[in-house]
Every structure is written in structure tokens, then in C-alpha cells.
Computed example of a mutant assay.
Amino acid sequence: MAKETEIEKKNLLTESEFLHLSEVFQINKNDFFWQANSYFDTVNDDIKKQGAALRVRKKKDTYELTLKQPAKEGLLETNQKLSEEEANQALSSSLFPDGEVKDELHSSLDIDSNALRLLGTLETYRGKTPFKEGLLFLDQSVYLDTQDFEIEIEGPTETAVQTWMNDILNKHGIPVRQTPNKIERFFLRKQEQKE
């Protein structure tokens, strides 16, 4: 179990921009790995209303429960490793194990884990490479009958990651696009499907 601050910037890409940057940063098809994020909230979207997000991530044969909350700079992540059995209980019955995430849900957000339900799953094919003092990711995400592409940069400060992102976008003629995070895009698509 761990808490960490995540400082990142994202920008949506077209498929051709995504393929171009994959070449530029020498991330080939075999370097991409699959992961799935399954999102949870209450019926009234109480987690979302507080600017937070709760997910179970499957990557290879590992599972992790993560609560992301707004922080002074970036996002505060509370992470908890899950066994396959614990992950399956969360995914099939919205039953979560005791631990730091459940405690944080209750103490910081005043949310009872028994009120949570599975919203759905977003699958991502992700490539990553070291970049300056951080990491650069290229993501192709598939969810709710749609797909999108993005670049994400993580680093030590908001100023650094913003500068690095601007430099890459300017150098490669890619426009700055309003880029909600993955769970927000998932929610937006879910809302579009309802309408």
C-alpha cells in the first residue's frame, strides 16, 4: 500500500499523430502492453462529484485498487495491491477488501464502500519510455464502443511537465486539445450513450 502524488499532463491525439510519435520516440508495437481499468462510484456519483476516481487496474497478472483525489499539485493516489480473488470480488460484486483505500474513501470522501457499483471497463494499450526526469506514455484506449489516442507525460512538477508537453506538441505541429482524464472521457461517453 502506498500514497504518492502523480503530476501529469495529457493531450489527445489523432491516430496518425499517435503513430508518428510512436516512431519519433521509438516505441514499437511490441513495446505496448495491455491494461484494463474498471471504474466504480455510487449511484449518485459521489466520488466523481468530489473530483476523485476509484479503479481496479489489471496489468498482466497483477491487480491494484487505486483511489485518486485532487492534491495541491497533481493528484494524490492511494494504491493497494489486490489478490486475484479480491479483484474478482470487487469486479463481480463490488466487495472491497479492508485496507488503506477503503479507509481513505471513508475518512476523506465520507463514502461507504458498500454503496459502490461497477461503472464499466476501459482497456488501454500503453507504450512508455523515459523522458527527461519523467516518463512519456502513448495510449490507445478502447471503451464503450469508442477508441481514442493520447500522449501523457509524468514528471516532478506541473511546470516541468507542461513545458515538456508544449515543446513536443509545438515541435510536431500537434494542437493543444482539451483532454479530460480517462475516467472523465469514460463518463462523457457513457452520458452520450444515454442521450
Rank of each mutant, 00 (worst) to 15 (best):
D103V: 04
S108W: 00
L169G: 07
S107A: 06
S93T: 10
E86F: 05
P70E: 05
D45S: 14
L169M: 09
R177I: 11
E86I: 10
G51K: 09
L105F: 03
S93R: 13
T129F: 02
D112C: 09
N11T: 04
T146C: 12
E192F: 13
E86R: 04
S83H: 08
S141Q: 08
I174S: 13
D61W: 01
D41I: 05
N30F: 07
L119Y: 11
E64M: 10
E192S: 15
N181K: 14
S16T: 15
N44Q: 15
S83C: 07
Y143C: 09
D167R: 01
K194V: 06
L82S: 03
L116I: 12
L12R: 00
T146M: 09
N30L: 10
E150W: 03
E15L: 08
N79V: 08
F32L: 07
M1T: 12
T42H: 11
V142S: 14
G74R: 12
A90V: 11
E6F: 02
S16N: 14
T179F: 02
V176A: 12
S93W: 02
L138M: 01
D148C: 04
S38A: 11
R57M: 01
K3S: 14
D61H: 12
S83R: 10
N114C: 06
T78M: 02
Q178H: 05
P97S: 10
W34G: 00
T157G: 03
R117L: 13
A115P: 00
S94R: 01
D148A: 01
F32D: 09
E64K: 12
G155A: 04
